[in-house]
Amino acid sequence: MTTLEIKNLDVSFGEKKILDNLSFNLDSGQIAALLGPSGCGKTTLLRSIAGLIQPDAGTIRFGKQLVSLSSLSLPAHKRKIGYVPQEGALFPHLNIAQNIAFGIDRSAFTKEQIKQVVKEMLTLIDLVGFDKRMPNELSGGQQTRVALARALAVKPAMILLDEPFSALDAQLRAELRTDVIKLLRTQKTTAILVTHDREEALVSSDVVALMRDGKIMQQGSPEQVYSSPTSATTAMSTGDTLVLSAKRLVNGQTNYLFNPINLDANILEIGEVVIRPEEIKISKDLSSAKIIGEITKIDYYGHDAMVEIAVSNESVQVRIPGPAKYATGEKVALEHLGPIRFFANSKS
């Protein structure tokens, strides 16, 4: 069932168009990641869904309910969605229990029931015993967990997370992310996570939406967007990418760095081939090699290494499993394992 349906959404701040005729759907229970560089409009989209921004045109539906139509929009407090902004935004004047209970309707629940929900939430976020603490006594990760619990406590139809882990260090970030995603999955909550971290988007979500310049460029499962990008740009949004100029020939073959066939056959179109660094194999055995290059740089990461190799006039990046047994200056044989993703240059 579709929980969220956005059609032709436009948002402008003054002259500047932030969201440009954007459409997006999300099924119930799914976790979506909005991935894109800063300034691409992903936070604006999230805030439009939350009702914190009034769009200029387009529609937003929650299930069957229309919440935004052209410049008419249902205010945030009537939308029943959970919102976790950057750095949590806990209420500084309330303790943890009061923060979590903040959104619960006091007229619909008894004090005991509210207490019970708070208790459940504290267990869920693994902060039992912290109920009387104040937000400033908590670490960044704990604050984020409380912010999440506060949003979940009202059992929202959907939860929106705006780069909730951005303020944390790498290890804590990965841990907390795993916890939060697990939590959202057990609660079967529909969620949208805004992030500019490629790995975070791929590892956390069922659906990745790649955003750029106020538009969604591609939307699909993490595997789809990573291995079947729709353009060189979308490929670059999801991971390290090698873009090589290429020519497609009439006979169906592609001429590019790793397939330097002669160009006797007629050229059909000119464009680019997009390769992931792990799709290239290198070896020390130069005897039967078609392509040979010289290693110019090795970035060693422990579990793997990124090797930069000069081939003809190009510089090629290759990811190899660590520990690296190569040295800079060494000559190596290169082979592209495929697939060949060819994108024709947009013609005028």
Binding site: R47, P75, G82, V84, G103, V154
Partner: peptide, 18 residues
């Protein structure tokens, strides 16, 4: 008063006066 706190309160069902 942090802007984020006001916005979160709005998403938790409070109108401007609340």
């Amino acid at each position: 008063v942090p802007e984020g706190a006001k916005e979160v309160a709005a998403t938790l069902g409070m109108n401007k006066w609340a």
